[in-house]
């Protein structure tokens, strides 16, 4: 049985003129537990929208998303919040760390809405990503690479079944990107978490044995935006 099963996923937005603009049209997508997949997506192929739908941040217009037997959609927002807090980890391109909180607090907050804060695990995760001596540092006191590592630790804090990484190396130089990617994959592997890593960078994607193109997956990205009144 697949860990993640997506069927008939559709999402559209309104343009400034009020016309409906289809962004996502994914007939079917599935992912096995513990699988790591590289998803190629250039700008405008709906990659962030796809990940936001998978994470339950956005509610799709149609279709179903089932994660480990739990329905993210259709489902209420409260259920989506709960699944996101318990079963999903999200690594953002811009890290999205809370600037007023220390590294440790950022990771603890990642746990707070799910299984509850576990200080020992948060410290262990930060140690694992090489930030044992930066627990009480604020994000602005860290380098870009270190901030990314905090984001990785936070994404893994709740023992997620699935980690979504949106251009996780987009803000890093080549060396840091290589290290960060290796770390993400390693930690996900250790935790037994499946990983969907969206990137436009062929070098990043080449590290994944299993790769898919979002353009192939998303029918809305293959044709000019259909416009309906």
């Amino acid at each position: 049985m697949a860990l993640l099963e997506v069927t008939g996923l559709k999402k559209s937005f309104r343009d400034p003129e009020g016309r409906s603009m289809a962004v996502l049209d994914v007939p079917h997508f599935q992912l096995s537990a513990g699988a790591h997949i590289g998803l190629a997506g250039t700008s405008g192929t709906g990659k962030t929208t796809f990940l936001h739908c998978l994470a339950g941040i956005l509610a799709p217009d149609a279709g179903s998303i089932v994660l480990d037997g739990e329905s993210i959609c259709p489902g209420s927002e409260a259920v989506r919040d709960s699944i996101r807090a318990r079963s999903l980890g999200y690594i953002f391109q811009t890290f999205n760390l809370l600037q007023g909180f220390t590294c440790l607090e950022n990771v603890l907050l990642g746990m707070s809405f799910g299984r509850g804060p576990d200080r020992a695990r948060a410290e262990e995760l930060l140690r694992r990503v090489g930030l044992a001596d930066r627990l009480r540092h604020l994000p602005r006191q860290l380098s870009t690479g270190q901030q990314q590592r905090v984001a990785v630790a936070r994404a893994l804090a709740n023992h997620p079944k699935l980690v979504l990484a949106d251009e996780p190396t987009g803000n890093l130089d080549a060396a840091n990107a290589r290290d960060a990617l290796a770390l993400i994959r390693e930690i996900c592997h250790e935790a037994g978490a499946a990983l969907i890593c969206v990137s436009h960078d062929p070098q990043v994607l080449s590290t994944f044995p299993e790769r898919l193109s979002l353009a192939d997956l998303n029918r809305a990205a293959r044709r000019p935006n259909p416009v309906s009144a």
Binding site: A55, I57, E77, A78, D81, S82, R84, A85, R86, Y90, F92, N96, L97, L98, Q99, G100, L109, G110, S112, F113, G114, R154
Partner: peptide
């Protein structure tokens, strides 16, 4: 706005 969105992305509910 961004901090609140991050908290929501981490699973915080609207009521929280």
């Amino acid at each position: 706005r961004r901090d609140l969105a991050i908290l929501r992305a981490l699973g915080a509910r609207r009521t929280t």
